[in-house]
Write a protein that binds this DNA or RNA. Structure first.
Length: 463
RNA sequence: UCCUCGGUAGCUCAGUGGUAGAGCGGUCGACUGUUAAUCGAUUGGUCGUAGGUUCGAAUCCCACCCGGGGAGCCA
């Protein structure tokens, strides 16, 4: 008797093999004299059908305990199924019930639940088909990301979670302190005296690892971050979390074109990997969640991304016969209706828009000749809109200092960032993408809270 | 934060001034190959919370709490 995972049995199992499986009962069908149950162990979307015969020891009492949600270990022989739904099934010779699940109180039923309800029983929802598939795909994405970068010789950088740079990028930050909040020490001006705080100055949870990634890129050339980031924005939407994971590659000796090449290659690799490794899960999403995801994934893998400058994109939008809610004019930030028109209607494939007006982009992006635009890029994908944002960074000390002044970024805490331009500066570029939005795109899940195991949003940090 | 829709049985919802409903689930029974089994019976309720109007409120009014969708911000 060999312990096997269900996914392995469904793929490789042969009749006559004796196996042991351990898992949770999804459904039970009792007939006169025997019964069927489906056991899922998380290794795959499909469970293994087990057949219990009344000749089993303590058949009646055991069967009563095998309800939806109960945990069992079963031993038996694999046999070709007489039924139509599956090729192989397990003829049970021995059952051990580890834990029962009272059917009168167990919240999960043998039917569909709303995702809103499942969020209220977050600790149980991974036992459902959809959420289970989401986390298998999420894991595959994570593995693909590491594989892609590691194969290319990128170093994985563990950027800090606590930071004292309060201007890393956009967004409100969470404060980190060990002050007794009922007894805050005050200075002469009556303000909180942070010199007495744990780090001797205000500290925060990071909103981005990019600046630290730039530090490491100046020594290792090619690096990437992949870790949690935090935003204290009070934004309640299906696309925002207070805690989410971000991927940020950074490459030295690289310009905007190299950045675009990496972004395109990166996305194609991830999507192909998930397609190869989670075909059942993706079929499931395509059937039950969003019927366009396989088409969208295929579109990304099999088309060269279109590349246009912001200025050209604006001209194309102005020429468009389509009416937009937001008027198009050089200098505006592209609205999602504009992005979708470019990707879904005009080009019908992923589009990289580059060289945006400097006024709508961050201080660290490299100023282009003519000083009207910066070397920024956004990757727009059909079906989702912006999926990646990146730029070539400003590597010229004088220009960076000028840009920081113009955009009112404090230089005091970023002296080290400026030092990178003082000592051995090189052209470099990188991009960032939100991990949960990537998983959302691949699975077609509508709400971002359903693609992270334990979602944190304003007013909610349960579980 | 703003706008908007909603909260009724374990779940999904109907009921919009006059005796609280359906489907699913659960329970019991039937069935020798089921597939979210099927068939029959049965069991489920402080109608989000607290006030108010009324002879009478799930239904109308007010406040608050919670959830969804959208906007802004962004990833």
């Amino acid at each position: 008797m060999e312990f096997r995972r269900v996914a392995d049995i469904l793929k490789n199992g042969q009749p006559q093999e004796s196996v042991i499986i351990k898992g949770w009962v999804r459904t039970k069908r009792e007939l006169k004299g025997f019964a069927f149950a489906e056991v899922n162990d998380g290794s795959s979307l499909a469970g293994l059908q087990i057949v219990l015969d009344s000749s089993l020891e303590q058949y009646e009492s055991t069967l009563k305990k095998i309800n939806t949600g109960s945990s069992i270990e079963v031993a038996g022989q694999l046999v070709a199924s007489q039924g139509k739904g599956q090729k192989i099934e397990l003829q049970v010779s021995k059952v051990t019930v580890y834990g029962e699940a009272n059917p009168e109180t167990y919240p999960l039923q043998k039917k569909r639940h709303s995702f809103e309800f499942l969020r209220e029983i977050n600790h149980l929802r991974a036992k459902t088909n959809t959420i289970g598939a989401v986390f298998r795909v999420r894991n595959a994405c994570a593995k693909a990301i590491h594989e892609f970068f590691q194969n290319k010789g990128f170093l994985w950088i563990h950027s800090p979670i606590i930071t004292t740079s309060d201007c890393e990028g956009a967004g409100e930050m969470f404060t980190v302190t060990n002050f007794d909040l009922d007894k805050l020490p005050k200075n002469e001006e009556g303000k909180v005296d942070y010199s007495q705080d744990f780090f001797g100055k205000p500290a925060f949870l990071t909103v981005s690892g990019q600046l630290q990634a730039e530090v490491m890129a100046m020594a290792f050339q090619n690096v990437y971050t992949f870790g949690p980031t935090f935003r204290a924005e009070n934004s309640n939407t299906s696309r925002h979390l207070s805690e989410f994971w971000m991927i940020e590659p950074e490459m030295a000796f690289c310009d905007l074109e190299g950045d675009q090449n990496l972004a395109e290659e990166f996305l194609k690799y991830i999507f192909q990997y998930v397609l190869d490794h989670c075909p059942e899960d993706l079929e499931f999403f395509n059937k039950w969640i969003d019927k366009t995801i396989l088409g969208n994934i295929d579109n990304i893998i099999n088309h060269e991304f279109e590349r246009v400058t912001y200025t050209k994109a604006i001209a194309l939008l102005e020429k468009a016969s389509k009416k937009f809610d937001f008027p198009v004019e050089w200098g505006i930030d592209l609205q999602s209706e504009h992005e979708r028109y470019l990707a879904e209607e005009l080009f019908q494939k992923p589009v990289i828009v580059t060289n945006y007006p400097k006024d709508i982009k961050a201080f660290y992006m490299r100023l282009d000749e003519g000083e009207k635009t910066v070397s920024a890029m956004d990757v727009l994908a059909p079906g989702i809109g912006e999926i990646i944002g990146g730029s070539q960074r400003e590597e010229r000390l004088d220009v960076l200092e000028r840009r920081m002044q113009e955009t009112n970024v404090e230089t005091d805490n970023l002296w080290w960032y400026l030092d990178l331009r003082r000592y051995g500066t090189v052209p470099h570029a990188g991009f960032g993408l939100g991990f949960e939005r990537l998983v959302q795109f691949i699975t077609g899940m509508k709400n971002i809270r359903d693609v992270i195991p334990f979602p944190r949003t304003p007013d909610n940090a349960e579980f």
